[in-house]
Amino acid sequence: MSTIQIVEDTKEYIGTWVTADGYIRHKLLPGNRYDEGRGSRISAYRGSYTITGNHIDYLDDTGFTADGEFKDGILYHAGMVLYKEI
């Protein structure tokens, strides 16, 4: 029987996730911090994140919250689809 590994266990969520057009870029950093770029704004938003299973919760440094889900190597967040940069 094979063991199912989730993103939380493998740390595969760490790295840069981008929309297909490259406009939105989420850098999920070690230490549960993130930096989000939008268009020409390199650091439009910064904050912390927590991951439970394949669910991610964001807390922006300004107090804004959001969430998302990792599924089949894709991050679904606030109506956006983000792919991990390799």
Results as ranks from 00 to 15, higher is better:
residue 35 D to H: 13
residue 82 L to G: 00
residue 31 G to L: 09
residue 26 H to W: 12
residue 76 Y to C: 00
residue 62 T to S: 10
residue 64 F to Y: 09
residue 18 V to G: 00
residue 76 Y to K: 03
residue 49 Y to R: 00
residue 86 I to V: 13
residue 60 D to P: 11
residue 58 Y to S: 10
residue 29 L to V: 03
residue 15 G to C: 12
residue 21 D to Y: 00
residue 52 T to P: 00
residue 18 V to P: 00
residue 57 D to Q: 09
residue 72 D to G: 02
residue 68 G to N: 02
residue 24 I to P: 03
residue 62 T to G: 06
residue 37 G to T: 12
residue 18 V to K: 07
residue 13 Y to L: 05
residue 78 A to D: 14
residue 32 N to S: 01
residue 34 Y to W: 04
residue 39 G to Q: 05
residue 23 Y to N: 04
residue 84 K to C: 03
residue 27 K to T: 15
residue 30 P to C: 03
residue 30 P to S: 11
residue 24 I to L: 09
residue 80 M to R: 05
residue 20 A to F: 12
residue 31 G to W: 07
residue 27 K to S: 12
residue 43 S to H: 14
residue 13 Y to W: 07
residue 71 K to L: 03
residue 36 E to D: 06
residue 8 E to K: 07
residue 79 G to D: 12
residue 31 G to P: 02
residue 51 I to L: 02
residue 57 D to G: 10
residue 6 I to Y: 13
residue 41 R to N: 13
residue 44 A to V: 15
residue 24 I to W: 06
residue 8 E to D: 09
residue 37 G to M: 14
residue 43 S to K: 09
residue 40 S to P: 08
residue 56 I to R: 02
residue 36 E to P: 01
residue 64 F to N: 09
residue 65 T to P: 06
residue 70 F to L: 14
residue 12 E to F: 03
residue 40 S to V: 10
residue 49 Y to Q: 01
residue 41 R to S: 13
residue 20 A to Q: 14
residue 65 T to L: 00
residue 58 Y to W: 14
residue 75 L to F: 06
residue 74 I to E: 12
residue 68 G to L: 00
residue 22 G to K: 01
residue 20 A to C: 08
residue 66 A to E: 15
residue 26 H to G: 02
residue 34 Y to P: 03
residue 5 Q to W: 08
residue 73 G to P: 07
residue 3 T to G: 07
residue 62 T to M: 08
residue 65 T to Y: 01
residue 41 R to A: 14
residue 68 G to M: 00
residue 76 Y to N: 03
residue 26 H to C: 04
residue 47 G to T: 11
residue 36 E to I: 11
residue 9 D to F: 08
residue 4 I to T: 07
residue 66 A to D: 15
residue 12 E to D: 11
residue 15 G to A: 15
residue 54 N to Q: 10
residue 12 E to P: 00
residue 24 I to V: 11
residue 7 V to W: 11
residue 81 V to R: 10
residue 75 L to P: 10
residue 10 T to E: 14
residue 43 S to T: 15
residue 35 D to F: 07
residue 29 L to R: 08
residue 57 D to P: 15
residue 10 T to F: 15
residue 54 N to F: 02
residue 28 L to S: 02
residue 40 S to H: 06
residue 23 Y to C: 01
residue 54 N to A: 04
residue 29 L to M: 15
residue 7 V to R: 07
residue 84 K to M: 04
residue 80 M to F: 07
residue 14 I to D: 04
residue 65 T to K: 11
residue 83 Y to V: 02
residue 11 K to A: 13
residue 69 E to P: 07
residue 15 G to P: 05
residue 27 K to E: 15
